[in-house]
Amino acid sequence: MLTRIDHIGIACTDLDATVEFYRAAYGFEVFHTEINEEQGVREAMLRINGTDDGGSSYLQLIEPTREDSAVGKWLKKNGEGVHHIAFGTADVDADSEAIRGKGIRVLYDEPRRGSMDSRITFLHPKDCHGVLTELVTSAAPHAQGEPEGH
């Protein structure tokens, strides 16, 4: 069962400048940064709030580290902006199988590692009214680390 909006992914060409915009405009601070080599992105997670299920909601700012990454290709075609929406779930495996059973294409056969050691999969945007949709099972809170001091 989907429990919350985990994050909204925003593709950008300059991660540092985009982080500074969200800090200056809205007061959001960086909670976590990492480079995901498999997905070819450098990212910053800006924590917005906590949720009833113990998770949090974030803005995920993503900058491609290579032009041939999925985000790099998307950015070249669409420009900066909202890339995807991610819903939190306690069990990405079960929920992706249930959704697959409803005829919605799940892009990964098995969930992969996502931000902050989460487990993720994506749903095909053509089956979700044009919205690339991610399902996320967060890692245990202690595995996510502490907010970064910026």
Rank of each mutant, 00 (worst) to 15 (best):
G88T: 06
V106W: 09
G79A: 07
A86R: 06
D68N: 15
L107Q: 11
I85H: 08
K76A: 15
N78Q: 10
G81E: 11
A98Q: 13
D52C: 08
I104K: 05
D91L: 06
V71T: 14
T89E: 03
G55W: 02
D91Y: 05
R66S: 08
G54W: 02
A98C: 07
A90K: 15
S69G: 00
T51C: 11
G88C: 02
R100V: 04
A70Y: 09
A90Y: 08
P64Q: 13
T51F: 00
W74V: 02
V92L: 11
S56K: 14
E80N: 07
S56C: 15
Q60D: 13
D93P: 01
L75G: 01
A94Y: 05
R105F: 03
G81V: 08
A70F: 11
A90Q: 14
V106P: 08
A70R: 12
D93C: 02
K102P: 00
V71A: 14
R47K: 15
V92A: 10
D95P: 00
H83A: 05
Q60Y: 05
A94E: 12
W74K: 09
R66V: 02
S57G: 13
A70T: 12
V82Q: 08
E67H: 11
K73P: 01
D91M: 04
V82C: 12
I85V: 15
E67W: 01
R105S: 14
S56T: 14
Y58C: 01
V71P: 09
G81Q: 10
D95V: 13
N78G: 03
L107S: 05
H84I: 01
E67G: 11
V82M: 14
N49M: 15
Q60T: 13
N78E: 12
A90C: 01
L75T: 00
K102Q: 12
Y58W: 03
N49K: 15
T51P: 08
N78T: 04
D93V: 14
E97C: 00
I99F: 07
G72P: 07
N49S: 14
Y58V: 02
H83Q: 11
H84W: 04
A86D: 05
R47G: 00
T51D: 12
E97T: 08
N49P: 03
L59D: 04
S57I: 11
D53G: 06
D95R: 06
V92I: 03
H84P: 06
T65E: 06
I85G: 00
G88I: 01
L107R: 09
L46A: 02
L107W: 03
E97H: 09
L59N: 04
V82T: 09
